[in-house]
Design a binder for these strands. Structure first.
Lengths: 158, 158
DNA sequence: TTGCTCCTCACGTCACGTGAGGTGGC
DNA sequence: TTGCTCCTCACGTCACGTGAGGTGGC
């Protein structure tokens, strides 16, 4: 059987008792299975296991099954923020290793890396702009050819 | 030995007799080696062989060595245009297979594919814009923290 | 003979997708 | 017993990079 990943609750109604486990203790007691974490974040099971294999996540175990703590969930949020910002998984691991102690609410990047990443993304944006521009020109050429074909058809009957 | 790829003429002065072969015939007589084509287009030898393995290029042979004609070079230009426009190699092969007969000066994409690609790239651009925006916010937070640290240091001496 | 350019495997990278085949608790 | 969720290999994808080891003509 294939694992279903992120869509096992298609109606959007997930069993709440699994997600929070209220009253079972306090503080870091919101322990989740891999399936619950996947559903909560939109990340596939495979991706979560992959992040672990790359040293980005380190869930504990209950027998063979992985158990993710609130700290793990917060760390995953930082990983996803890093991906949104265009960092590779290797870079994200570096960033999180740098000052993991701080338990930062946002990705703890330094000034230099921040500036370089902005430059990097701005270059990509410029490439994208040029590509979009070129495609729009192609599109208007297609339109012009269509008009020309109409007129050509008219002329060819002369 | 490693193959040097695109940088074998670091001074920018390439032997002209290799690039054109003047007077050897007419029409499609501008035959190039893989190294010459690589140097002329900035594509690596590996990439050229890879495009061939994917059915995008089909150079003839002189013994074991590949020989690229003017038609091959023009086709490569279309491939590179496709890549700039964000198409995958598989899509580029489809596009070039569609109406190869036309020997088009620009990538012969149809209206539907053009519109969809524009949408696709515009989505990517939006993601990029958001990322850049988020990074700029992080940057200004870093700046603010630096100022706060200065003031904090002053206050802490009180 | 030395150098250069060319060749063909073939493994590595990046971020996972996609089965295959098996386990454990309700 | 059936279903569900979980597990671990392990091969596939995309667009090449990077050696290793060998060939051919000046």
């Amino acid at each position: 059987m294939a694992e279903s990943g992120t869509q096992q609750y298609a109606d959007g109604v997930r069993p709440i008792h699994l997600a929070i486990q209220p009253g079972a203790g306090q503080a870091d007691t919101a322990r989740m299975t891999i399936g619950e974490l996947a559903a909560a974040t939109g990340v596939t099971l495979r991706a979560l296991r992959f992040y672990q294999s790359k040293g980005l996540l380190a869930p504990s175990r209950n027998g063979r099954a992985r158990v993710f703590s609130l700290a793990d969930r917060n760390r995953l949020d930082l990983i996803l923020q890093g991906k949104r910002l265009g960092f590779t998984l290797g870079e994200i691991r570096e960033i999180l290793a740098d000052r993991d102690r701080e338990n930062s609410p946002t990705l703890p990047i330094n000034r230099k890396r921040c500036v370089e990443q902005i430059k990097f993304l701005e270059r990509q944006r410029q490439d994208l702009e040029q590509a979009i521009c070129e495609l729009r020109q192609i599109y208007s050429c297609l339109f012009r050819d269509l008009l020309a074909a109409d007129h050509g058809a008219a002329r060819n009957t002369l």
